[in-house]
Design a protein around this nucleic acid. Structure first.
Length: 424
RNA sequence: GGAGGGAUGGCCGAGUGGACGAAGGCGGUGGUCUUGAAAACCACUGUGCCGCAAGGCACCGGGGGUUCGAAUCCCUCUCCCUCCGCCA
């Protein structure tokens, strides 16, 4: 959500942002509704003030004067109701449209259509040269009996899987490693509900537009989250925080649910694109200060780069172009790890900066040193995502003898073993 | 799922049709006093919207209604508590 004043003062900026981000928004209609809305507020409040005064004065009057005054007040009351109904209608339309106004991308974000226009920022590590015939993670998973996709499909349909034995342990190791890593960076673990109310989905700006990608529990009017960002960011909704407590650094571990509607042909191989996976996420709430916000963004980006380096996975960082940004995002960096079976990089992390877009919707504020209440800035980034890192590890660490080496940092979580061996 | 009770400011808690944005207490901030602290005393202490401003308006769990006028009356929803039932 943007400030209505900001829209009034920068309509062209909004139009440009919407065009670049591929969102349709009728700025003129918003401006017209805004004006109508403010005129109605003014009129109804003036009338209301008169009515209240008249009501107070009623006691002083007697006889015919009182009757006349009463008659007049009745009319005012009627008029007030009419005005209010009108205002309510206008505001409903206005609010509906406001939810669809995109945030303005930062100046440095490249203009582009989709992920093909994302710009590489930097690169770390060299993809390994294999001197034997490599397998993809599906084959490796099958051979080692640690990933079972057919049975996943049997039980839950396409894009489902089982992690078995060392597969389950490896997923768990990735999660534990990521969680411990981010805790050492000063983040507070915050585990919460993966089933959330609508406001949390709207508040984090997954709704509107994202409904099709979300598992909806219609019976209870609840939703399964696609990322823990939803419940963590909503944690402080409707609160006024202390400036001295900022920034809040939270780390969540949760299951993530994604319908992946409309992706039938895409990424059908293996566990790259699935309906359910585990993820550790970092979420930051900080002061409404551009510099601070940028600093935090670099911080959470760096944290995740450190994770990939610790895992020994070659990766690069890309700046997402305007067409690849969500409604509320100002800047987004993706981390993409090398995935041999894809013969390229695949997204494993996504670091977003929202300015106060989510905070406005969720009503998360703080009092600054001048006593003014301001909306916080929110940011988030993946720490580790189970399926994509697991497949990257299996593929990058596979050996000629069919075993998979376990990255050193994960060994403590796998009983100190250094290899995943095929079953006997 | 059934029956009953409740929801008031940061917290506790009064208020059953008008002068109530709301007593009182606690907490917080500032001050007086003090060598310092404590105590005592005094003052201040919610949020949002419209407006250049003066100012106005809204908010007593949410929504709707009755009334000239609602924290207060009516309807409805949500949440919390107690009891019964059911059940991981």
């Amino acid at each position: 959500m943007l400030d209505s004043k900001f829209i009034r003062e920068n309509p062209d900026l909004i139009r440009e942002a919407a065009q670049n981000k591929k969102f349709e928004v009728d700025v003129d209609r918003i401006l017209a509704l805004d004006e109508k809305r403010r005129a109605l507020i003014h009129e109804s409040e003036t009338l209301r003030a008169k009515q209240k005064q008249g009501s107070k004065d009623l006691g002083k009057l007697k006889g015919d004067d009182k009757q006349a005054a009463l008659e007049e007040l009745k009319q005012m009351s009627e008029r007030f109701k009419t005005l209010n109904d009108e205002l309510r209608n206008v505001e409903a339309d206005y609010d509906e449209l406001m939810l669809r106004v995109p945030n303005v991308p930062a100046a440095e974000v490249p203009v582009g259509e989709g992920d093909e226009d994302n710009v590489e920022l930097r690169k770390w590590g060299e993809p390994r040269k294999f001197d034997f015939e490599t397998k993809d993670h599906v084959e490796i998973g099958k051979t080692l009996d640690i990933i079972d996709i057919p049975r996943g499909v049997k039980v839950s349909g396409t894009r489902s899987y089982f992690f078995k034995g060392d597969g389950a342990l490896l997923e768990n190791a990735i999660m534990q490693f990521g969680l411990n890593y981010i805790i050492k960076k000063g983040f507070t673990p915050l585990f919460g509900p993966v089933i959330v109310k609508d406001f949390a989905m709207y508040g984090t700006a997954f709704f509107p537009f994202g409904e099709e990608q979300c598992y909806r529990i219609e019976k209870d009017e609840l939703n399964l989250v696609g990322t823990s960002e939803v419940f963590v960011t909503s944690f402080h909704s409707d609160e006024i925080l202390k400036e001295s407590d900022l920034p809040y650094l939270y780390a969540a571990l949760s299951t993530c649910f994604r319908r992946e509607a409309g992706t039938y042909g895409r990424d059908t191989k293996g566990v790259y694109r699935v309906h359910q996976f585990q993820k550790v996420e970092q979420v930051v709430l900080c002061r409404a200060d551009e510099e601070e916000s940028r600093r935090q963004h670099e911080f959470i980006l760096n944290n995740s780069e450190e994770v990939l380096r610790a895992l020994g996975l070659p990766y690069h960082v890309v700046t997402c172009c305007t067409g690849d940004l969500g409604l509320g995002q100002v800047v987004k960096y993706d981390l993409e790890a090398w995935m041999p079976s894809r013969e390229g990089y695949g997204e494993t992390h996504s670091a977003s900066r929202y300015h106060d877009f989510q905070a406005r919707r969720l009503n998360i504020r703080y009092k600054d040193s001048d006593g003014k209440t301001k909306f916080v800035h929110t940011l988030n980034n993946t720490v580790v995502a189970s399926t994509r890192l697991l497949m990257a590890i299996l593929e990058n660490y596979q050996q000629a003898d069919g075993t998979v080496e376990i990255p050193e940092v994960l060994r403590p979580y796998m009983g100190g073993r250094s290899r995943i061996e095929p079953p006997k």
